[in-house]
Deep mutational scan, measured.
Amino acid sequence: MTEYKLVVVGAGGVGKSALTIQLIQNHFVDEYDPTIEDSYRKQVVIDGETCLLDILDTAGQEEYSAMRDQYMRTGEGFLCVFAINNTKSFEDIHHYREQIKRVKDSEDVPMVLVGNKCDLPSRTVDTKQAQDLARSYGIPFIETSAKTRQGVDDAFYTLVREIRKHKEKMSKDGKKKKKKSKTKCVIM
């Protein structure tokens, strides 16, 4: 069974824990209790493949930012979460993405942009803004509501699919490099 290491990042209060708990335990946590770091595991079937999701729910508070490099190193894919009623959390996505790329030393890291709290009427981040940002990053965008469960499975499952595509691409690139290195030079 394939294991996928997913990391949920975003500013404090955007609903990272609520999304994760909704996926794992099928219930909505409405009281806000700032996370330092929590880890969850769940076995699911995605596109006919049974897999184990190892999900790291991270601290959004700035005082825990020193811990970010460590979990970013171990993560295979990242859910970059903002709240649709919090423009600052949307603007912060850029910083999370840049930090992930720096730590992973790669421009090509599996990510999904997630606009959470889409059940709320007080939207300050337009869907088109988020779609445009995701398009500019070359990553999928999904709106979710941890409260109603809308888009929750889709967000995590899409990230797994992005990781699969990335692994497939990397193995193809690896095979191309191996083929090239088999060419021999004969000096007579």
Rank of each mutant, 00 (worst) to 15 (best):
V152Q: 04
A146F: 09
G151K: 08
K42G: 10
R135G: 05
K169P: 02
V7E: 04
D173A: 05
G115Y: 03
E49A: 05
K16N: 03
D126A: 10
K128R: 11
D173F: 02
R123N: 13
R164N: 11
Q43F: 02
Y157T: 15
N116L: 15
E91C: 02
S89H: 08
H166C: 07
S65F: 04
K128T: 14
M67V: 09
V160Y: 03
G60A: 07
D154C: 10
I84T: 15
R149K: 14
K117D: 05
M188Q: 15
M67A: 13
D47L: 01
V81Y: 00
G77C: 06
D105I: 02
C80G: 02
E98Y: 01
C80I: 15
E162S: 04
F141D: 01
T50M: 04
G13W: 03
K178G: 13
L52M: 13
I93Q: 06
K42F: 07
L23N: 15
I187Y: 13
K5H: 06
L79D: 00
A66P: 14
A130D: 02
I36F: 05
V125K: 10
F82I: 05
E162P: 00
G48Q: 06
K117I: 14
Y64L: 08
A18H: 04
V29H: 10
R135M: 08
D119E: 10
D153Y: 14
Y137P: 01
G75C: 15
H27N: 12
I93W: 03
A11C: 07
T124E: 14
I84F: 14
L23W: 11
K182A: 15
G12M: 04
I21D: 15
V29M: 12
L159P: 00
D33I: 09
Q99R: 06
P121R: 10
M188V: 07
K175V: 08
V109D: 00
E143Y: 12
D154W: 05
K165P: 01
C80S: 01
A155V: 10
K169Q: 07
Y32A: 12
I84R: 10
V160C: 02
R123T: 13
G10L: 00
P121G: 14
P34T: 03
H95P: 02
Y96R: 01
T35S: 13
I142N: 11
H27K: 06
G13F: 08
N116M: 15
N86M: 01
M67D: 15
Y40A: 13
A83P: 13
V9P: 00
D33G: 10
I100S: 00
G10D: 00
P140W: 01
L56Q: 15
D105Q: 15
G75N: 06
E162M: 12
G15V: 00
T127I: 12
K165L: 04
K104V: 10
T144D: 02
Q150K: 15
E31R: 07
C185P: 15
D154G: 07
G60H: 09
